[in-house]
Amino acid sequence: MGCYPSKRTKETPGYEEPTVLAAETPFTVSEVEALYELFKKLSRSVIDDGLIHKEELQLALSRNKNRRNLFADRIFDLFDVKRNGVIEFGEFVRSLGVFHPNAPVEDKIHFTFRLYDLRQTGFIEREELKEMVVALLHESDLLLSDDVVETIVDKTFCDADLKGDGKIDPEEWMEFVSKNPSLIKNMTLPYLMDITLAFPSFVLSTEVEDSE
């Protein structure tokens, strides 16, 4: 006798079966079920509709749903694969899969490239890099003169733009990250290794056995 799965499917928009999501991600079925607990918590923090809205992700990441954060916005945009203004459960699990310690490094590098390609031109451009540095300084209440910001951006851009054509392409980004692996440190969440310990309530009621 199962507990909730079939009922959840009907009631929650965008809900996908854990067995399907586990087959496509580094997570086990139990871990996907534990992630559902986290998803539910996040998706009811502002609007209780079983979907994660931008304000809800903003609130979880920056503790302030009203203060816009460029980077939280970018994370939302990448998680919202269908581009319908909300993050559904399947999108949440598949996107978090990239942050799993066992996910391929190439996937993490590719994700950061898309994250920093603000205008989605297929390149990280100098203006985008400067915009992100300014946003970070603003977020951190740090004051640096425009000259210093320009110098930091110039130096970094020069190091990464190996072809010297004024933009960083995916190949250059891969090379740059290989030389500076700390750039993808935040792309690995150790929490995901023991997500069932963080959210054990669902695991107690699961009806599906993990195959591994």
Binding site: L38, A60, S62, A72, D73, M132, T151, I152, N186
Partner: peptide, 26 residues
């Protein structure tokens, strides 16, 4: 002069908005 030698992407990666571990904080 320390900030001038900083890697801009490294600076950006410290953003709270990119710190997804906060999703797991109770």
């Amino acid at each position: 002069m320390a900030p001038v030698t900083m890697n801009a992407f490294e600076l950006i990666s410290t953003s709270q908005g990119l710190n997804l571990s906060s999703l797991f904080e109770k």
